[in-house]
């Protein structure tokens, strides 16, 4: 295979699941290209990726704030009332001396999800304003390191499991934050499915190449 220079390698894609080599072809707006071997999505084309991405990440960030400030669930048990928020789950671990688990929970449930969406907002803003070529590269690298360590979807299922355990012992009321967390998780899944970091890399290259 002969190529012009190293930059031409950007037209090639190695499938992230099965490592098959593909050549990138232009596709229609709003469609996706799939791997011939394993059918996983290789890339999508969205002509308004910056606007969509910015709107989505900002919305997700708002829902994240709501999910963390308001009560998650409230229970009534033996005449006592008790409620929790997401930060309270790891603070109570700290209080009981479980520093390792507490730290881990704080990182995967709070710090990284927050950082990921703040970085997304910054990134799309930078691309929109066509500024910060070097910083945007660093942000993208950080994002790809942090992405596997955000576990809010698992936490959502854990809440359900914990509550089912309590059925029969206590009366359970779902709080605002629970629904906000559910929406946050859905948006998070939608974003990981529809906006790959790869597409942002391509967009970044295109934007800063145009500028020069």
């Amino acid at each position: 295979m002969k190529i012009e220079n190293e930059d031409a390698l950007d037209h090639l894609i190695i499938c992230h699941q099965c490592h098959t080599l593909h050549e990138e072809i232009p596709i229609e707006d709003g469609t996706k290209a799939c791997c011939v071997e394993c059918r996983s999505v290789l890339y999508r084309y969205d002509s308004r990726l910056i606007d969509h991405g910015f709107a989505l990440s900002l919305t997700t960030l708002i829902f994240f704030a709501v999910a963390n400030f308001f009560p998650l669930v409230q229970i009534e048990m033996l005449g006592n009332e008790q409620f929790i928020t997401i930060p309270m789950t790891f603070f109570s671990l700290f209080e009981n001396g479980f520093y390792v688990v507490g730290m881990l929970c704080a990182v995967v449930l709070f710090l990284f999800p927050l950082a990921i969406f703040v970085l997304y907002v910054m990134l799309f803003l930078m691309l929109k304003l066509k500024k910060g070529e070097d910083l945007s590269r660093r942000l993208l690298v950080w994002l790809s390191y942090m992405k596997p360590w955000s576990m809010n979807d698992i936490f959502l299922i854990s809440i359900l499991v914990a509550l089912v355990k309590l059925i029969g012992y206590a009366q359970i009321h779902m709080g605002v934050a629970f629904w906000a967390l559910a929406v946050f998780v859905l948006l998070d899944i939608y974003m990981t499915k529809h906006i790959h970091l790869k597409e942002i890399w391509m967009l970044r290259k295109q934007i800063f190449a145009e500028k020069q």
Binding site: V73, I75, Q82, I84, M88, T89, F90, F91, S92, L93, N96, V101, C105, L109, M151, I154, F155, S158, I159, V161, A162, K165, L166
Partner: peptide, 9 residues
Amino acid sequence: FVVAILAAL
């Protein structure tokens, strides 16, 4: 996570 939630609650 379940243990963390139950312990906090």
